[in-house]
Design a protein around this nucleic acid. Structure first.
Lengths: 229, 229
DNA sequence: GTTTTTGCACTGACCAGTCAGTTCAAAAAT
DNA sequence: ATTTTTGAACTGACTGGTCAGTGCAAAAAC
């Protein structure tokens, strides 16, 4: 569809410009734009329906390109998906690291850093809910082609949280009895599930509300030794 | 569900006994057994591969029955899946309620109740990892046939946690400023993700380890006003 | 003798991936 | 400055295969 006339060339969408590869002076911006459109189409469809239930035809149609174009740009449906995963988690990891570094620079405590990362996580999920959804849905699946990609990418993100926890223990800010790995996983889960529930079941709430609720939990002001109210 | 070897009835699992329909004295146990086998086969396959990627032939084969039997017992593949969901979440909800009630009976605090529910959640996930996996993968998907079933069933489970939180606030045991819904979601997420990570990435850890880590977080002994170590 | 299961052939829809051909802007040739 | 060539990007009809669901007669279980 879309005879495309003299192709008014949708000039460079510039959605984000991650590590947008080479770009040799007269770089093929066209190709990059097409790939970006395909990512965007794929992420929502796969989040809604799952990988197998989403057809390449659907992705192509929503992106407004022909099916052949998908295969011109990606070796297969799975490869498209894998690159989508890498792309998305790259954004998240960068955002988390940034939040931690910023707190550090401003002389905050490690609790402040965790809190800032919680917020960064919420902002990310708010901006890319479909990606988050799809990530969670695939993370614990076994027996799948992109299993190893997913593991690597997960480790990348969780490592940031673990790092902050470890530094906190060294500084004596956290008890040295905490289990870094499990605690990091629990924190990630807390943010992930609360945020997805927020999006799905009470989208009218503000990000600040959600952040406040999670901060409270983090700081043990829900059930810890607390002070009246 | 979940094969688990030749199933020596370990600790009286009471797999069914839910609202297992009619059962007129000489109830058709045969049919029930077949359905159970199909649930068990379906749950692992779907957890591993996802709903669409799992074929009815595979389910039948793993369950050791003919394909026709699947359709004799369930109207369609989706219906089989929906009933599986109801079945599984029914078990979880019952277990959570039981944990809360037991604590109550023994005169524990509401924090104790939450703690007991965390443990009950972990035990459930430990026993039915495939179900948990599949549940998480489907929960936030939109546009799907069983979407409404899933919402009902989710609400059922989360409501138990919300109930305990509310009672805790009434009793003045928790701050009345906490957001019940968000906090409940966050707690569920904490347990869910920590447990799935435990299963997937460090299965050698004991349930007690995981429980201890989560307890600590719940009680604010990670970053709250804590006392040395 | 009724209920449940089996085995298996069949259908029709659907879908990942292919490929011969088209488009067009920029480079090269004139 | 005009024509020709090039090749990266894109197209969409087509293929080979898969799979949900059906139909049914005979066997097994109860």
């Amino acid at each position: 569809m879309i005879p495309r006339g003299p192709d008014r060339g949708a000039v460079a969408v510039r959605i984000d410009a991650m590590e947008s590869s080479s770009a040799t002076s007269s770089g093929s911006t066209r190709r990059e734009a097409t790939r970006q459109k395909l990512y965007e189409a794929a992420v929502t469809l796969i989040a809604e329906q799952g990988f197998s239930a989403t057809t390449v035809d659907e992705i192509a149609e929503r992106a407004g390109v022909a099916k052949g174009t998908v295969y011109y740009n990606f070796a297969s449906k799975s490869v498209l998906f894998e690159e989508l995963l890498r792309h998305g988690v790259g954004l998240l990891t960068a955002s988390l690291r940034d939040a931690a570094a910023r707190t550090e620079r401003e002389g905050g405590t490690k609790v402040d850093a965790l809190d800032a990362m919680i917020r960064a996580g919420l902002v990310f999920i708010d901006r890319y809910p479909a990606f988050t959804q799809l990530y969670v849905a695939e993370l614990w699946r076994t027996n799948r082609a992109w299993q190893s990609t997913l593991m690597m990418v997960r480790q990348q993100a969780v490592a940031v949280v673990e790092g902050v926890l470890r530094e906190g223990i060294e500084r004596g800010e956290f008890s040295d009895e905490i289990d870094v790995q499990l605690t990091a996983a629990a924190l990630v889960g807390m943010v992930l599930v609360a945020a997805l529930d927020w999006q799905a079941f009470q989208p009218e709430r503000s990000l600040d509300d959600v952040h406040a609720a999670l901060s409270r939990l983090l700081q043990g002001r829900v059930s810890g030794s607390h002070q009246g109210h």
